[in-house]
Each structure stands twice: as C-alpha cells, then as structure tokens.
C-alpha cells in the first residue's frame, strides 16, 4: 500500500512539535469556525482556506499529496453540491451548494493537517485523556496495528490473482473473484485474531491496554 499519509513518516516541522491536544483543538476550532460562518461570505472562507493551506505547507505536506487528495474529494463534493441547484433547474439552491463546498473543503483540509501532524498512536493517547472509553481505544489501537498487515495481505492476494487470471476477464467473474478475496481475508483475519488472542492471553492480557507512557 503506497498511501503516503497512512503510514507514519519521520518529518520534522514546526507543526509536529505541537502537543497533540493543541493540534486536535486547532483542527476542531477551524472546522467549527467554518461551520458557523455564513456560507455566502466569500472573504472569510477564502481567508480560512488560505490559513489552512499555509498550515499544510508549514507541516511540510507534499503539494502533490494535497492536490491529489483534494481533487478526489472535490470531484464527489462538486457532484453533490451541483445536484442541489440541479434539482431546482438551476434557479436556486446556490447558497447550499456554496456551503457544501466551502465547509466540506475546510473540514477536509483541516483533517489532512491533523493527520499529517499527529501520529495515530499519539492521537489515541490524547483521546484517552479526553475520557473516551478505554475499550473503544483498545479496539482502535488493535485495528490500527493490524490494518496494514491485512492490507498487505490483500495486496498479496491481488498480485496472486493477477498472476493467475487474465485482467480482461468478464464482469461476473471479477465480482465473484473480488468477493472470494474478501471472504478469504475474513476467514484468515478471524483465524489470526484467535491466534493473536491466545498469544496475548499467554502474555498476561486481561482486557486493559497498557502503554509505555503510563
């Protein structure tokens, strides 16, 4: 899997030295401000977007990553935003479309900044300090740990499939094949979870996740 933002990267920037809770609060504040501003007031939304882009460049997020992700996001957001005035034959509904685009983009960029600046495990530690139930955080930590393992396993299965079939196979065959891959991944994951659970119990797992910084 080559999604550049999903796996942790060693990058040093001003933003990375922020305490995670400050970064989280900043991100939430920006999204809140974007939600509360009137959608038709262009200058304020433009200023907010400039602030966000400046923050992203300060956090040393590669421009092609931002542009690529933003393009995919905007494709879907534009589709939905345009459908609102479309439903009225383009006579009205433009304010809603503006609101969708402005607020959605601000929220997306703010989330992009947060995930670049705060590694996921530090985010979980911050959430624990905010009194999120421990079982939820334990499940999240577990999921994050094995997400990449399963993802790589899926990639391996895909490579094996490509090596064994023609890519121009029929639609029904490809659907059947894809569903089989997911089913296989499911069975393997559940078996793996059994083994991991046994290993954890053998090492003294009692249900509470403990980390080094406690």
């Amino acid at each position: 899997m080559n999604d550049p933002l999903a796996r942790p990267r060693p990058i040093r920037s001003l933003c990375h030295r922020l305490p995670p809770i400050v970064a989280l609060l900043l991100s939430v504040t920006v999204i809140t401000v974007g939600m509360l501003l009137p959608p038709t007031h262009w200058p304020s939304h433009g200023a907010l977007l400039c602030i966000l882009l400046a923050a992203l460049s300060l956090a040393r997020v590669p421009f092609r990553v931002v542009a690529g992700r933003l393009a995919i996001f905007l494709a879907f957001a534009l589709l939905f935003a345009v459908s609102v005035p479309l439903s009225q034959g383009f006579r009205g509904g433009w304010e809603i479309a503006q609101g969708i685009l402005c607020r959605g983009t601000e929220s997306f960029l703010s989330g992009l900044w947060l995930i670049s600046v705060v590694p996921f495990d530090r985010l979980l530690a911050t959430l624990r300090r905010l009194y999120v139930p421990a079982i939820l955080l334990a499940i999240l930590a577990f999921m994050y740990r094995f997400l990449f393992v399963l993802w790589d396993e899926l990639d391996t299965m895909r490579a094996a499939r490509r090596a064994r079939t023609f890519d121009r196979a029929g639609l029904v065959f490809r659907w059947h094949n894809a569903a089989q891959m997911i089913g296989m991944l499911l069975i393997r994951s559940l078996g793996r979870s059994e083994r991991v659970y046994g290993a954890m119990c053998a090492r003294g797992w009692d249900g509470t996740l403990r980390t080094l910084d406690e």
Partner: peptide, 22 residues
C-alpha cells in the same frame, strides 16, 4: 478481553475489504 482483538481485527478486515474494487 476477547472482544478487543476480535472486533479490532474484523474492523481492520472490513476497512481493507472496502478497498477492493468491484
């Protein structure tokens, strides 16, 4: 204590499964 690895693994599997193109 069993719920955590089981649910976490299934959640990861569903996430990975959402990547598969149909």
């Amino acid at each position: 204590d069993r719920v955590v690895p089981l649910t976490g693994m299934t959640a990861a599997m569903i996430f990975a499964g959402q990547m598969v193109n149909f």
